[in-house]
Amino acid sequence: MKNKKKLKTLAQRQARIGRLFVYPWLVGFLIFFAWPFIQSLIFSFSQLDVSPEGYKLIFVGFRNFIKALREDPNFIRYLFTEIGNIFVNIPLIIMFSLFIAILLNQKFKGRTIVRAIFFLPVVVMSGALLYVLESNSLEQFNIGAQSGMALSNSPFLRGIDFRLFLVRIMGNIPFLMPIINAIDRIYEIIWKSGVQILIFLAGLQSIPPSLYEVAHVEGATSWEIFWKITLPMISPIILVNVIYTVIDSFTDYSNDVLRYILEVAFRQLNHGYSAAIAWLYFLIIGVVLLVIIWVISKRVFYMNE
């Protein structure tokens, strides 16, 4: 027996040790992820009655899915709002965080303090906090409009006044909508790009300095250096960040669809239907992600290939 073990090749022994380190994860994955994942698929095709003794399943075919897509007035509306949000937010978050990361990557006095402030959202930001603040500020806007009191001052800066100003000078509202939306979102964007800035910073640090030196020697301007070196070198990280942003906003607590799923499950106690919309939602995220990855990865530049 002992002899047999010694006869194994190095590669085989390596594989065994590697598996020893990794397989605990697989066990956890099967118990806490794969099994519930499959079960939720089964639930989505069923009507589920949960009782203290356990649960009963009644197979109903595609009824839950049909209900979500054709009868439920809320689901489709929430879904499209969220998807619309994502497509507006992604470019804004990516551009903003790349811009800030490039600035923070330079050496200047007080850099530590500035960085500390910029990563504050990563620490402080929680869905609950943002939800509390945002729901308040909307109400406050109404209250403020009524009473003109000190509380009309919301914690979130909003482009309300600026919006009125723009509409007055331009007069053309449909044309202005994207700009106004972007202005209204500035707050959200800045608060949601903490992790993205971190990832971009790490990426910027990994660009070999020799590339920049050569560019300087050749007399390239900062503008050219950005487009010809920084952007191509950082493009794989743009992909990472886009994926992170999509996942982050699709799984955020303040997300309407997610709150609706929770509400259906725990207020209306319609577990089967809740599983069905969760699955629909997941499939749609999957499609959105795949499309985004497919579009971007064609334009990504890898230096080692």
Partner: peptide, 11 residues
């Protein structure tokens, strides 16, 4: 990538 809500009820 899988939102935690998908696993919610089974869990």
């Amino acid at each position: 990538v899988v939102p935690p809500q998908v696993l919610l009820i089974p869990l």
